[in-house]
C-alpha cells in the first residue's frame, strides 16, 4: 500500500525532460550524428538502386572528406578550449604554398611534406603566441592574420599555380599515403584528446576557464598546446591538398575556416568547447556534407535545390544537436 502511494506521487516526466535526458547521455553526441550519417547513406543507397554503395562511390566520399575532416579533427583541440580560429584555411593554404615551393626547388617529396607540416605548425603557433602574449581573443588574431596570410599567398603564387608532378601525387594517393597519414593522425588525436591528462585539461579549461585556473591549470599553456596539435593536422591537410590536385593556387584554402566550423557543428560538437568536446565530430560532419552533396547529385537533384535541401538539413541537425539552456550562458563568451 505504501509503495503504491509512493509511485503515484512521483512526478511524471515531460517529453522535453525525457529528450534532455537522452541528449545528456555521454554517447549521444557520437550516436546521433553518426545515425544521421548512416541513415543518409542508407537512404541514398536505396534511392539510387544500390549505386551509392559502390566501392568507388564510398571511396570518393571519403576522399572528398579527408581534407576538411583532418582540419576539423585538428581544430577540435582549439574549439575545446573555448577558442575559435577561422584562419585555419589560410594557414593550410600557406602551408601548401610552402610545400609546393620546396618541391619546385628540390623535387623532393619528403622535403615537401616536411615543409608543409612545419610551416603550418609555425603559423599556428604564431597565431597562438599572438593571442597569449598580447592577451587577445584567438578569433580576433585569426581575423587579422588571415588577411596577412592571404596577401602572402597572392603575392607568392600570383597568376600562376604552383605545380607538383601530378603522377607523383597520383602515386602517393593510390599508394594509400593519405589514408595512412589520416588514420595515424586521427588515432593519435583520439588518444591524446580522450585518454591523456592534457586532453582532460583542455576540456576542463573550455568548460570553465576560471575554475580551471583556480585548480592550477594554465590556460595560456593550453592554448599553445592546442594550437600545436592543430598545426600538425593542418599541415597534414596541406599535404593532402597538394596531393589531391597536384597544384596550389592563390585561392587554395579560401573559406575553409568556415567549412571546418560547419563540419564540426554538424558532427555534433559545440564550437564553444567544454567537457562534451571530442575529436571525431569533424570527420562525421564532413562525411555528412559530402554524402548529401554526392547523393543528391546522383539523384539528379538540381544544384540550386541541393543548396536548399542541404540548408534545411543543416538547420535540423544544428537544432537537434545544440543545447539551449533556460538560464543565461555560464561561460564568458567575449
Amino acid at each position: 500500500m505504501t509503495n503504491t502511494i509512493a509511485v503515484k506521487a512521483a512526478p511524471r516526466l515531460k517529453l522535453t525532460d525525457r529528450i534532455d535526458i537522452i541528449k545528456n547521455k555521454r554517447m549521444f553526441s557520437l550516436a546521433f550524428p553518426l545515425s544521421i550519417l548512416l541513415l543518409l547513406i542508407l537512404a541514398f543507397g536505396a534511392a539510387t538502386g544500390g549505386a551509392f554503395f559502390r566501392g568507388t562511390v564510398l571511396k570518393g566520399l571519403f576522399d572528398q572528406t579527408l581534407i576538411i575532416g583532418t582540419m576539423a579533427t585538428a581544430v577540435s583541440f582549439i574549439y575545446t578550449t573555448g577558442n575559435l580560429d577561422i584562419s585555419v584555411g589560410s594557414v593550410m593554404g600557406l602551408g601548401a604554398v610552402a610545400g609546393a615551393l620546396v618541391y619546385g626547388a628540390t623535387e623532393n617529396v619528403v622535403l615537401m611534406i616536411g615543409t608543409a607540416i612545419i610551416a603550418s605548425i609555425l603559423l599556428m603557433l604564431f597565431n597562438g603566441t599572438l593571442s597569449v602574449v598580447f592577451n587577445i581573443k584567438t578569433t580576433m588574431v585569426a581575423v587579422v592574420v588571415m588577411q596577412l596570410y592571404n596577401a602572402i599567398i597572392s603575392e607568392v603564387v600570383g597568376a600562376d599555380t604552383l605545380k607538383v608532378d601530378f603522377q607523383l601525387c597520383k602515386m602517393l594517393e593510390d599508394g594509400g599515403f593519405r589514408y595512412g597519414a589520416f588514420i595515424i593522425y586521427f588515432v593519435v588525436c583520439l588518444l591524446a584528446f580522450h585518454f591523456t591528462e592534457m586532453g582532460r585539461q583542455l576540456r576542463f579549461i573550455g568548460g570553465n576557464k576560471k575554475c580551471a585556473e583556480q585548480t592550477g591549470m594554465n590556460p595560456k599553456k593550453a592554448i599553445c598546446i592546442s594550437f600545436l596539435m592543430a598545426g600538425i593536422g593542418i599541415g597534414i591537410a596541406a599535404v593532402f591538398t597538394i596531393i589531391r590536385t597536384g597544384s596550389v593556387g592563390s585561392t587554395t584554402g579560401n573559406g575553409m575556416g568556415m567549412d571546418v566550423m560547419l563540419a564540426t557543428v554538424l558532427g555534433g560538437m559545440s564550437i564553444f568547447g567544454g567537457a562534451k568536446s571530442n575529436t571525431y565530430s569533424g570527420i562525421i560532419g564532413a562525411l555528412t556534407v559530402s554524402a548529401l552533396n554526392k547523393g543528391l547529385l546522383m539523384l539528379g537533384v538540381s544544384s540550386t535545390v541541393i543548396q536548399g535541401v542541404r540548408g534545411v538539413i543543416f538547420l535540423l541537425l544544428v537544432f537537434l544537436n545544440s543545447e539551449r539552456p533556460s538560464t543565461l550562458p555560464a561561460r564568458e563568451q567575449f
Binding site: R244, G249, N254, K294, G300
Partner: peptide
C-alpha cells in the same frame, strides 16, 4: 541530353569534387 549543374566552384578542388560526383552520377 541531360545536364547536371554544379554549385559555384571556387577552385580546382571544387571542380575535382564535382567531376568525381558526375562520374558517380
Amino acid at each position: 541530353c541531360e545536364f547536371i549543374f554544379s554549385e559555384q566552384c571556387n577552385g580546382t578542388e571544387d571542380i575535382l569534387t564535382f567531376i568525381e560526383n558526375c562520374a558517380d552520377a
